[in-house]
């Protein structure tokens, strides 16, 4: 099963390679990985999506926590959460498909961020399933290039918060 794991870490030189080295060295899989600073200077939040049975995910969590620079590890998938990914897609848009592409983008609340005679570059955010749906629909029209950020995620606030 897929798990989204959130890792709070000290923003020290080499910390990212400690994390990725751990995954490659122990044969854990990385589906996507995102990292950026938090509000506190000196700490970053890393979101990694990995696949594995419960025992593997348990090891991943423990091994991450064992890294000296890691402050906190949470398996977001264990609770209610929101996840988002952003994609930039350059899709073919020639005279006969231009209108259709715009309609599709509109349905998914995407934005056109660059226009040329033969293509649109569009920006889209959403859950993994939404992104997949957009890609599936646009693919027959012709996707020329795609860049994805990978997933970031956050637990939902409990009701009384």
């Amino acid at each position: 099963m897929k798990h989204t794991i959130s890792v709070l870490l000290q923003n020290k030189p080499g910390v990212l390679s400690r994390v990725t080295g751990l995954f490659s060295g122990r044969g854990f899989n990385i589906e996507s990985l995102c990292v950026a600073e938090t509000l506190e200077t000196g700490t970053s939040c890393l979101t990694v999506v990995s696949k594995g049975d419960d025992a593997i995910i348990e090891q991943i969590m423990k091994q991450l926590h064992k890294l000296i620079d890691v402050i906190k590890v949470t398996d977001i998938t264990e609770q209610e959460y929101v996840e988002r990914e952003m994609v930039l897609i350059r899709v073919k848009a020639e005279s006969h498909t231009r209108a259709e592409v715009l309609r599709i983008i509109d349905i998914f609340r995407g934005k056109v961020v660059d226009v040329s005679a033969k293509s649109y570059a569009i920006e889209l955010t959403g859950s993994a399933s939404k992104i997949k749906a957009v890609i599936d629909i646009l693919r027959p029209i012709g996707i020329k290039e795609i860049v994805r950020t990978g997933i970031i995620a956050m637990p939902r606030a409990s009701k009384n918060k």
Partner: peptide
């Protein structure tokens, strides 16, 4: 870099 996987921790 070389000793990252075989030290408990390391520093430059």
């Amino acid at each position: 870099g070389i000793t990252r996987p075989c030290t408990k921790h390391n520093y430059l």
